[in-house]
Design a protein around this nucleic acid. Structure first.
Length: 421
RNA sequence: GUGACUGUGGUGAAGUGGUUAACACGGCGGAUUGUGGUUCCGUUAUGCGUGGGUUCGAUCCCCAUCAGUCACCCCA
């Protein structure tokens, strides 16, 4: 169908774009406040990068990637998320060469082949940040603080921050065994999905929405109780920093991230009113990812925020006032002969930095006045027969409804004084 | 990938197996010939997502397909 875009895509029309500019600007403001610099990486990467980075067994990789072969026979993939790409760029551009923490942010489209639903699109946009280099839990807290501040700055409330630790390559495998041991005899009673999760990703069972699974796993041992010394210390450190920053959080031992690269800190911010897709922000630490991508062992942490979901949340809270068109001066040529001088005035106004516009379809006087009204014009500049003959223009003040006929230069001056200040 | 519901003009929508597809908003034109936000009049779908089928005849029935919505799954 030529008149409909691909499934799961969305056109951002001029009125919506105003909202986008707003939330993007807020993101940039926060990032500069926290000393994060923007990075813009390509929209597609070698498929291999995502296979290695995200994990071959994850849903994102197994069934959600837009992968194709280019004309050179290489397999490339539209990025389903951006952390792997940022890490690749960090390595390629040697952004860590100065020995400092690389603090980066990005805003842009991501692609996941999924069934669209409320808050879920095939092309969607994420604002994300990454801090690559530092190990201490204070960065974790900083990352979380950026997310929380961002939502606050947009006026969003009733958000829920949940944190957990998913351990590291030392303690997670051990926990996995402990958990499987606990669940083994209960496995036949688990839901269909969880049966398959038992081998693939047993931690996900804790996150299942099925009530029976919840019941069966209620007393399961928790990751936080099985953390190695280092991870445990990191996790309690994080909590101290969060408290110091006055950030409220909930411990959620069942919080699991879907991508393989996460270690230690995992967190999620939910906006419960959004329905099934209520996570507006998800993130965590990825201490093994850089090495996995072929770099030196370097820790990192970041988050991603779903911009469409942010907009949905703002809509729910009525933080998006209806867009208003604002054109301070509307120019009206009353006859075809008048369009030339009218166009001339338009040009001069714009040259002065004054937003002005006129009709180009030869509509009636009345219709043009209506247009002026629609765009909330403060002044209307009318060119009729008399004006043409005397080289003047009629300036009508739309708020008080009064009008005068003036020489062009005088009118221009008046508009300049009243609108440019 | 699975399931449920939906698909009529710019928008919100009514509607029936059978000549001209209600109504409202919006748009456009007009109401002593050059003026807005109020009022009044007129006008505004070659057509009921698309493609098949049933029928003498379908926008209304059936099938397929596409799209939207919500949920599962997954995640931002």
């Amino acid at each position: 169908m030529l008149t409909s875009g691909p499934r799961g895509t969305h056109d951002i029309t001029p009125n919506e774009a105003k909202n986008w500019l707003r939330i993007e600007a807020a993101a940039r403001t926060i990032c500069s406040l926290y000393h994060y610099g923007e990075i813009r990486t390509p929209i597609f990467e070698h498929t291999e990068l995502f296979l290695r980075g995200i994990g071959e067994t994850t849903d994102v990789v197994q069934k959600e990637m837009y992968t194709f072969t280019d004309r050179g026979g290489r397999s490339v993939t539209l990025r389903p998320e951006n952390t792997a790409a940022v890490v690749r760029s960090y390595l390629e551009q040697k952004l860590g060469a100065d020995g400092q923490t690389a603090k980066l942010f990005y805003i842009g489209p991501m692609f996941r082949y999924d069934r669209p639903q409320a808050g879920r699109l095939r092309q969607f946009h994420q604002f994300g940040i990454e801090a690559i280099g530092p190990t201490g839990p204070s960065v974790d807290a900083e990352i979380i603080a950026v997310a929380v501040r961002y939502f606050e700055s947009l006026g969003l409330s009733s958000l829920k921050l949940m944190i957990n630790s998913v351990g590291c390559p030392k303690c997670r495998p051990q926990y996995r065994v402990v958990l499987q041991d606990f669940l083994r005899d209960k496995q036949p009673d688990l839901c269909h999905d969880c049966q398959s999760r038992f081998e693939r990703n047993p931690m996900r069972i804790l996150d299942c929405k099925e009530e029976k699974c919840n019941r069966l796993s209620a007393d399961a041992p928790q990751m936080v109780d099985c953390l190695c010394e280092e991870c445990a210390a990191h996790f309690s450190g994080l909590q101290q920093f969060l408290q110091a920053a006055g950030i409220e959080y909930t411990l959620n031992p069942r919080l699991v991230r879907g991508l393989d690269y996460y270690t230690k800190t995992a967190f999620e911010i939910q906006y419960p009113l959004l329905g099934a897709q209520s996570a507006v922000c998800g993130g965590g630490r990825y201490d093994g990812l850089i090495e996995e991508c072929g770099g030196p062992a370097t820790p990192g942490i970041g988050f991603a925020i779903g911009m469409e979901r942010v907009l949905l949340a703002m809509e729910k809270q009525q933080l998006l006032p209806p867009a208003q068109d604002e054109v301070p001066v509307w120019v009206i040529p009353m006859a075809p002969e008048a369009t030339l001088p009218a166009f001339g005035l338009l040009n001069q106004l714009r040259g002065l930095g004054i937003c002005a516009d006129m009709d180009h379809s030869g509509r009636s006087m009345k219709s043009q006045m209506k247009q002026a009204n629609r765009v909330n014009a403060k002044y209307v500049a009318i060119f009729g027969e008399t004006e043409l003959q005397t080289n003047q223009v009629t300036l009508k003040n739309m708020t008080i409804g009064e009008q005068t006929m003036l020489p062009l230069a005088t009118a221009l001056n008046q508009l300049k004084q009243e609108l440019n200040g």
